[in-house]
Design a protein around this nucleic acid. Sequence first.
DNA 1: CGGCGGTGTTAAGGAAGCGTCAAGACCGGC
DNA 2: GCCGGTCTTGACGCTTCCTTAACACCGCCG
Lengths: 224, 224
Amino acid sequence: MTKVLVIDDEAPILNALRINLAARNYEVSTAADGTAGLAAMARERPDVLILDLGLPDMDGTEVIRGVRGWTSTPIIVLSAWGQESQKVAALDAGADDYVTKPFGMDELLARLRAAVRRAAPGPAEPVVSTEHFSVDLSAKRVTCGGADVRLTPTEWQLLEVLVRHPDRLVSQRQLLAEVWGPGYQNEANYLRVYVANLRRKLEPDPSRPRYLLTETGMGYRFRP
Amino acid sequence: MTKVLVIDDEAPILNALRINLAARNYEVSTAADGTAGLAAMARERPDVLILDLGLPDMDGTEVIRGVRGWTSTPIIVLSAWGQESQKVAALDAGADDYVTKPFGMDELLARLRAAVRRAAPGPAEPVVSTEHFSVDLSAKRVTCGGADVRLTPTEWQLLEVLVRHPDRLVSQRQLLAEVWGPGYQNEANYLRVYVANLRRKLEPDPSRPRYLLTETGMGYRFRP
DNA sequence: CGGCGGTGTTAAGGAAGCGTCAAGACCGGC
DNA sequence: GCCGGTCTTGACGCTTCCTTAACACCGCCG
């Protein structure tokens, strides 16, 4: 769940944000001034910071600089209408984005999504490991006992489909359709050849498969 | 020098941007509609794209999607006041930021700086070394056995893409799109020629590659 | 016991992909 | 306009991969 920290001294805005963000399934924490905000930033380690520039105890750009000293967490700035120079200063200090008050909640949420998306390297953990081998989906890399394993394109595609559905039984028809195309749904012999190839390259004992299991008459299953 | 591409169909805005950006030492190119814009994007390889949503020939979000298909170059969107839903759609399509017309030039420039700064690799290690050669990404210099190696512009771009994704498989389509442009995704023979050039200049034994590995049917991989 | 459907294994031919070389096209500077 | 460097383009031989077929195996049931 995405964690958001809101630093603002106006109670109505704080409440509105807390309610709306919580409703969208964000985890929200708040702080009412710059000092408390910097402390909360270090303590909570949020994924995004929403920062009001008009704080009672310190200038907004100082907060930004304080945060930027040790993390690149995205910062979205709230500023009152007309404070052009402040906004510019905030962006130059390292803010990622800003929204002018009064603002529409939809716009803020869209900017929030954009900021989180930019910061996130990848949506899902792309590496699946077993005791004997590991598969890095994004790098398209397979290592077995420390050494790289070379897979042909077809072998890789087949393994990818199985690994993306761990513990699930994947039917022969689905495998054939996803790897060879929808026109190959009766060529079950392809599967036998390529599953055998994968087992020879990955299984500790290819004749007694431990990870790439056969479900007779149905399909195959990957058990991590 | 930072390169900026402006896609806008209104001549006054185009001129204002050209003058102001050039005065700030940006290198500016322009396009008047989406089609020409996408072509210019591939040709010019700007560091930032400024995109007006109100184009005559296609929807702004389509342009964004066309660009995001092959590069993560920052995109700043210009939109008329009040088009809230358009702005949200643009951000969700992959835009990085937007500015509402009429806009202050200072604000646009600040957002431009922020976008470029965000896109910069930041604290990433700018020099990658192997046992036999080392690549300085920021200085664009390659040394092999103590001596400088001369690379042609195309050779350098190709090497840069591979080195920026160490250990990762980079598909032929991605390499072609990033080095030659999105229109060259079927010219796999270019890759063969230039990978061979790089190997001849960098590999200790070009016929038995140790760092620039080919994965038949899939792409290439740089192993440090 | 002997067929039968589904599966695992292996090998060979052809297709596709790759490395290499070289010649021509292009483009900049002089 | 010439010249050197760079980029395209095509052809050739070689390697890798995909497809296909043949055969052994296993469990099931008549």
